[in-house]
Amino acid sequence: MGYQGHFRVWRGSDEGGGLEDFTVEVNEGEVVLDVIHRLQATQTPDLAVRWNCKAGKCGSCSAEINGKPRLLCMTRMSVFAEDETVTVTPMRTFPVIRDLVTDVSYNYQKAREIPAFKPPAGVAPGEYRMQQVDVERSQEFRKCIECFLCNNTCHVIRDHEENKESFAGPRFLMRVAELEMHPLDQADRVQEAQSSHGLGLCNITKCCTEVCPEHIKITDNALIPMKERVADRRYDPIVWLGNKLFRNKS
């Protein structure tokens, strides 16, 4: 059965804006994106919203609903009470373009900063041979739909704009982990994870994991294993002492 739902939607641009109230029809089985579309069709033809697949697979419709970072197309209206006001705002961490649409180029920038997969010398594509158990571990990370909800939620950049330069965000630290765990990758990624991609800024508070719509265990399976690898290399007192005693002389 349909009902009249209360919506509060952020409208504006990078010059300013605010929350606006709407009353709009909600039908059984709908998701938040359906209602946003109805708003567009009936009351606010110029409301900007980015979406594509409506199946939780393209990662376009990331926004914040009642303060929680989520996909508009995967948030069922049935999780809200009929008299509850549903507040929809754009992702906070990225610059807003208009209404619910943000400029996510930070993420593309960070993606480019990660050196590509480096196969062993002399092995051409098509000649890669790997054991199933060796590739299996990083497959989880390949479920990522690049919605960037994790980067949006991570307090390292959400609450501290100035950290954007030095922090790749959980999405791309996970990419570093994926390559590092790849059985054929030859690049040394451990030092870079700490020095260039900002792994040390992560304090493993797991908000990335909490919001990931693909339920990837980002913190447990990518970030913490990377921190342990960095500890192997940089914070092992025995290795450190060895370097001090023997290598520094050269």
């Binding site: 914040e64 939620t153 307090h155 959400r158 609450d159 501290h160 304090n203 508070t205 960095v230």
Partner: peptide, 27 residues
């Protein structure tokens, strides 16, 4: 830091586990 996800933390600066003393978490 943070109190909960998508709730702003009260601190103006943040360096995570990159410096002393928190860098010692690596031990």
């Amino acid at each position: 830091s943070p109190p909960a996800c998508a709730v702003a933390e009260p601190h103006a600066k943040y360096t995570g586990e990159t410096r002393f003393p928190l860098i010692a978490q690596n031990l």
